[in-house]
């Protein structure tokens, strides 16, 4: 799976959680750009991603993430390391 595939799957998860099927998402997208991406949905997105990819993202990493691209990179890194 390429990084573009990961981005596409992560984007689908975000759209599902936010219930925003047409939301445009790129690597540069940030939570503050998206309606409904509050702290509760942030958790929902992270645990959905974790359960979809079978990985665990640790607390420090979550705190440090600035945009969707960094989440995608974390997923790819952890999948590679498994």
């Amino acid at each position: 799976m390429t990084s573009a595939d990961t981005l596409s799957e992560v984007s689908d998860i975000i759209r599902d959680v936010l219930d925003a099927p047409d939301l445009p998402i790129s690597r540069e997208t940030q939570a503050i750009h998206c309606e409904g991406w509050d702290s509760v949905n942030h958790i929902n997105i992270i645990i959905s991603v974790e359960s979809r990819f079978g990985i665990k993202i640790n607390t420090a990493e979550i705190e440090g993430m600035k945009n969707v691209g960094e989440l995608v990179d974390a997923v790819d890194r952890k999948r590679g390391a498994r």
């Binding site: 702290s39 509760v40 958790i43 929902n44 645990i47 640790n58 607390t59 979550i62």
Partner: peptide
């Protein structure tokens, strides 16, 4: 992790 982040005792 979720307990400490959000005080969710039961995971979503």
């Amino acid at each position: 992790v979720l307990w400490h982040r959000a005080k969710q005792e039961i995971s979503p």
